[in-house]
Simulated scan of single mutants.
Amino acid sequence: MNDTITFEDFSKVDLRIGTIIEVNDFPEARNPAYQLIIDFGDLGIKKSSAQITTLYNKENLLNKQIVAVVNFPKKQIAKFMSECLVVGAVKAKDVVLLNPENRVPNGSVVG
């Protein structure tokens, strides 16, 4: 377990629900990854790079709702600017995406 944090620390992390609306291969990435385009409702459209090619194919990801941190600074990955961090549970070396059990509006706050 990592260091204990306060509720104030946790409240700084802006976790939101978004729907993947586009998935592209990302051959320039150091590790196998996809480029995701995600609709966060009123927050707009954001891009993310995700190393999830082992458990997911592009067709399975399209229209899937996911959880992402939307208030990290942008990060340059090869020639791609990642604007959010899609979150998941690590299973061995693979990432299993976290997602709501039922559909919710894009941009919904996770808390």
Rank of each mutant, 00 (worst) to 15 (best):
E22N: 15
F72H: 09
V104A: 11
N24Q: 15
M81H: 08
V70Y: 05
N63F: 13
A68I: 02
S11N: 12
V70C: 10
T53L: 04
K74Q: 15
G41K: 04
S48R: 00
K47Q: 11
A29Q: 02
L43P: 05
E101M: 14
E8I: 14
A29R: 06
L98S: 11
R16W: 04
S11R: 11
F26N: 06
L97Y: 07
S48Y: 00
P27F: 09
L36P: 01
N71K: 03
D14M: 03
A92I: 08
E8D: 15
S82G: 03
S49Q: 05
V70A: 01
V95F: 01
L98M: 12
K47M: 09
V69A: 10
R103L: 12
V67F: 14
Q76V: 05
F80E: 11
M81R: 14
I45Y: 07
T6L: 09
E83Q: 15
S49M: 04
V87K: 15
V87N: 14
L15Q: 03
V86W: 02
I17K: 00
D94V: 04
L62R: 09
G44D: 08
K93P: 02
S48I: 01
I77G: 00
R16Q: 09
S11F: 10
I52Y: 10
G41W: 04
Y34N: 06
P32N: 09
Y56L: 01
A33G: 09
T19Y: 01
E101Q: 09
Q51A: 11
V96L: 14
I20R: 01
N63T: 04
P73E: 13
T6C: 08
T54C: 12
A89G: 10
R30M: 11
F10D: 05
G18L: 03
I37R: 03
V13N: 10
V95M: 06
K46M: 08
D39Q: 03
N71P: 05
Q51P: 02
A92M: 10
T19L: 06
L62F: 13
L43W: 09
R30V: 08
E101H: 10
L15Y: 10
V13I: 15
A78S: 15
I52W: 03
K75D: 06
P105I: 00
K12E: 09
A92F: 11
I66Q: 00
I5T: 13
K91R: 10
T4P: 04
F10P: 02
A29N: 10
D94Y: 07
I45K: 12
F40W: 12
I37W: 05
I66Y: 03
C84R: 03
L98K: 13
F72M: 08
G88L: 00
I20S: 01
T19K: 08
N57P: 09
D25R: 08
K58D: 04
I45A: 06
V13C: 11
N60E: 15
E22W: 07
S82D: 08
N106V: 00
N71T: 08
A68K: 04
K93W: 11
K93G: 14
T6A: 08
N24L: 12
V70S: 02
S11Q: 12
V70P: 02
T4D: 13
S82M: 07
